[in-house]
Amino acid sequence: MQAADFDYELPEGLIAQYPLRTREASRLLALGRDGCTEHRAFPDIKDYLRAGDLLIFNDTRVIPARLFGRKESGGKVELLIIRMPDSDPPEADRLKSTQRWQAMVRSSKALKEGTRITIGDDLRAEAVRKDSDGLWEIVLTGSDVSAAIKEYGVLPLPPYIRREAEPLDSERYQTVFAVNPGAVAAPTAGLHFTPGIIDALKGAGVELACLTLHTGPATFLPIRDGDVSGHSVPKEHYVIPEATGLAVVKARREGRRVVAVGSTSTRTLEAAFAAGPDEPALSGATDIFIRPGYEFNVVDAVVTNFHLPRSTLLMMMSAFAGRENILKAYKTAVEMRYRFFSYGDCMFIH
């Protein structure tokens, strides 16, 4: 199975650079696993969900992870803090004056171990070491590091959004149910949901639950060339509340559908229940790489945005609905000028 098998042509103009005026204004392409498609508006999602379905969201919240500073030499440095190797981001507030992060670094000249960086009056960084994946271990210090990150940090937008973050992004690049800070990328399938749509689904008998997976930058990385079997996916940390885990087990035993909102929820559920419903791993880190040939254990339907060519997320959806069905649906979406990627339109695959 080659990376090129998951390529498709996408005009640059179809990559959404801004959100639509309202969250629910997006279009919805419904794809059955038999290959049948329907073209609707996102509020019509209610027509595809039914009483008894268990709809699971990722409630992660994007942090202002881009930090800009200067070395003692005066050279500019940009840090993208990704994760805390010795503590999950929700615990960060307990580490008030010192926090250790893994970060991607862009610098005027290559960093050296021990390089000190001034980010603000009360936020400094020191480069400790570079790992085999090219990430730097960075120590941030200040009187209140979490508060300083909020003050000096900038919301990270995906690389295909070719503009700087603007005030509107602080609201629209978060889901309405985002409560657990730690992601550097939004779980974008959730961006279409509004409180009104959620209330309508509850009223129709759809059961709702949440989990948390802090999305990292690897979500944007395509597999360039070659056999995909040699590709590895970086680990991402997740937590599934006990109530959500029990709801999944109950739904499966009763023959009700488990519907994942987004690829992150899909990945988390499949990783957590890989050993079956009796031994779920409700917290941990997963590097599961779902691609054609994978047999799904938990997820029966998926709400998802359109994904990048050659990406592991496109391969996951191809595993779920079939590569030919997915690529045919994407071709149709291009022809009908759907909007793609984070601020783009949506699919319901069932």
Rank of each mutant, 00 (worst) to 15 (best):
L327D: 10
K235G: 12
V259C: 07
H307C: 08
V259S: 07
R256L: 14
A301V: 02
V302D: 00
R310I: 01
S263A: 15
L313Y: 05
L308Y: 03
A319R: 04
A275P: 07
F289R: 10
A271D: 00
I240R: 01
K328D: 14
L282H: 05
E324G: 07
V303H: 01
H231M: 13
N297D: 15
F273S: 00
S318R: 02
A285F: 10
K331A: 15
R291C: 14
L313A: 05
T266N: 03
N297I: 15
P309I: 01
V259N: 04
I240L: 02
I288G: 02
R291N: 12
R256P: 04
T266E: 09
T286M: 07
N325V: 05
L327W: 05
T312Q: 04
D300F: 05
L327E: 03
V228L: 10
F273D: 09
G284N: 02
V249G: 06
V233T: 05
L314S: 08
A329Y: 00
P309N: 11
A285P: 03
T304G: 11
N325D: 06
A251C: 11
T286I: 01
R267Y: 01
R267L: 09
G230P: 01
D227Y: 13
T332A: 12
V258W: 04
R291D: 12
A247D: 05
E295C: 15
K235R: 13
L314M: 07
Y330A: 02
Y330D: 06
N325Q: 02
